[in-house]
Design a protein around this nucleic acid. Sequence first.
DNA 1: GCATTCAATGACAGCGCTGTCAATAGGGGC
DNA 2: GCCCCTATTGACAGCGCTGTCATTGAATGC
Lengths: 369, 369
Amino acid sequence: MNHKSGANCPKRNDSPVIYGHGSRAMDDHNTPVSPPSGRRPTLSQVAAAAGVSEITASRALRGGGLVAKATADRVQAAARDLNYVPNRLAGTLAGGSSRQVGVILPSLSNSVFADVLNGLEDRLEDAGYQPVLGISNYDPAREQRLIENLLSWRPAGIVIAPADMTEASRALLVRADLPVVEIMDVDAAPTDMAVGISHHSAGRAMAHYLLGRGYRRFAYLGHAIDSDLRALARLDGFRGALGEAGQTLAQCLTLAGSSSVKLGREGLARLLAEAGQPPDLVYFSNDDMAVGGVFHCMAAGISVPGDLALAGFNGLEIGQALPVPLTSIASNRAAIGIEAARHLIERFTGGTPEKISDVGFRLIPGKTA
Amino acid sequence: MNHKSGANCPKRNDSPVIYGHGSRAMDDHNTPVSPPSGRRPTLSQVAAAAGVSEITASRALRGGGLVAKATADRVQAAARDLNYVPNRLAGTLAGGSSRQVGVILPSLSNSVFADVLNGLEDRLEDAGYQPVLGISNYDPAREQRLIENLLSWRPAGIVIAPADMTEASRALLVRADLPVVEIMDVDAAPTDMAVGISHHSAGRAMAHYLLGRGYRRFAYLGHAIDSDLRALARLDGFRGALGEAGQTLAQCLTLAGSSSVKLGREGLARLLAEAGQPPDLVYFSNDDMAVGGVFHCMAAGISVPGDLALAGFNGLEIGQALPVPLTSIASNRAAIGIEAARHLIERFTGGTPEKISDVGFRLIPGKTA
DNA sequence: GCATTCAATGACAGCGCTGTCAATAGGGGC
DNA sequence: GCCCCTATTGACAGCGCTGTCATTGAATGC
């Protein structure tokens, strides 16, 4: 439901205004309020306040009905009064299973991973788990270091979008002997579980679609593809399907740097400049790049798809909001995060989810190809 | 540096292909490799293997030169042989300071926060800290729950982009008595430290710029603004500056839902449909919305900025890659993350960074206004 | 009425590690 | 030759909590 308001949108009282860039000294560092008895309250203090033993307090606070209602109420009241915040480090150390989940992603500048993380966080949080994050920047060494670091927190599980795992990384995960979900790609055999789509198939599917639309002179424009294994898999599938149909990739340009609208825009300009006979379709490594391509065409007066057709991957919102919606493949990103969370949680609760879960993709016809 | 390759982009061996959506049963669940002696190795096992006491092993592993070189080497070798992974839960519990940092953001679907998180993670990671993430979805109650949860892991510090902190949330943070960085906005007095820009000033700056360009009939198009306090602050500053110049906001439309290109596109259509006398400029709550506005104009044949001028906020890459680059304000997102990390780390190491750090913004003239 | 059962609570030990203080052994100074 | 100092190592306790078993008292059954 939308609500509008004529010329009187929400206002707020005038607040202090700071112009430009600068910083204020940390002068009046207000002393922390109430360091009550030196430290933060512990369970034993709560127990004492409620007149019960530590373990009873523990049980009362964790719930589970092992404690008489009246007692439990008393304990909870005491905890509230003392502003007790449990120490899960101690709890986990003593009791066993952590409620943290290690999450390793190759990047966050790509909105794809942000979407996955969003879905993942939401479900984990609801189940009482907290993600501990690491970004590998597509660097296998950093990825390995992250795995070690995260494991040292003894997480309940790991979710990883592998960049290019070293053998050592894989060994670490295997030895750790905890649920591990490898996300994004289901083409390779996972260490433990995998949730994602087949990027190889996605590439093939797009090729089939485009062949069916009658395109014949294909070009590819990609970003630093060596470190993006999934983009490589799509290209591989794309080219494979072309080959089976007796076609080839007439032109193929990959640019250093991570994918972006800007790179796609500049890249397309360059690709067309270098082309002998221009392609009738350009397949981009993803939607960011493809949207850049659309922008180039707009600016250069190239009619899409009349003069040149464009196709991407991911089904990003921006591509669909374009004046001419982008031909792409919806990669079901949020579903991957949600599904990964489900796998972990199921495992935590004693279940045995499928080893490989393919959330599937969907071709979006769009209007650019 | 770019590298291109004619028609022979990187290939890879054909990999197994899975079509469409589905899942394979978890049949051959390979038994975990080597649960060596039932559990994972502990420090005491490493110590035993190296023929030293636990504490010596601990010191050797942590470095610091308190242990004779030869002994340290022996311990490290033993640790490697046993595949020892330290248990930081135990370490933190015994020793004191954690190496986790709680991070609370209102959303991740907005690339702005992904950018901040990216910068933050990078610096924290380099300093040996791990972010533990929570997403509040602009919900104060969830925000408070997240604070409680994160505090229970006894993090070394907290970074929070406040959605609309409850009194209880604020009290939790104060009592926790740890470094807290409130990010994004420096307009209000922070609990502890703040890193960001003044959104109020950003709104004013844009108003001044646009007034200088001669626009007089202003409209505003925003998303669910009640929960996005920073967008509200910008609008507030914008309107304030207009008022000082004797101008008013002729039209103001806010739409339910989070900001998106689609919402901006549809919103602008609606705003123009509802307008009596059409505005000569539309100020959007942010660049996502504004890009949507640009798309609407393209599709509807409205010339920008001739017929209608548009302005946004954030300086997103997409806006600048548009055929007509967007007039906007660069909000220095990565810098906020980096700066927040710096503040925390400085605090961890005994320093006293500034209480408020304004990373500043920059007006991007663009070509849409 | 007495054994039996169950609900409610508690004592104890220990999770894996590190801070503190103590012990040991050489080396150097006088 | 004796004492002091430093470098190196270790013993001990304890971080805050929970699993396991034990204890208590009251309710139940016959």
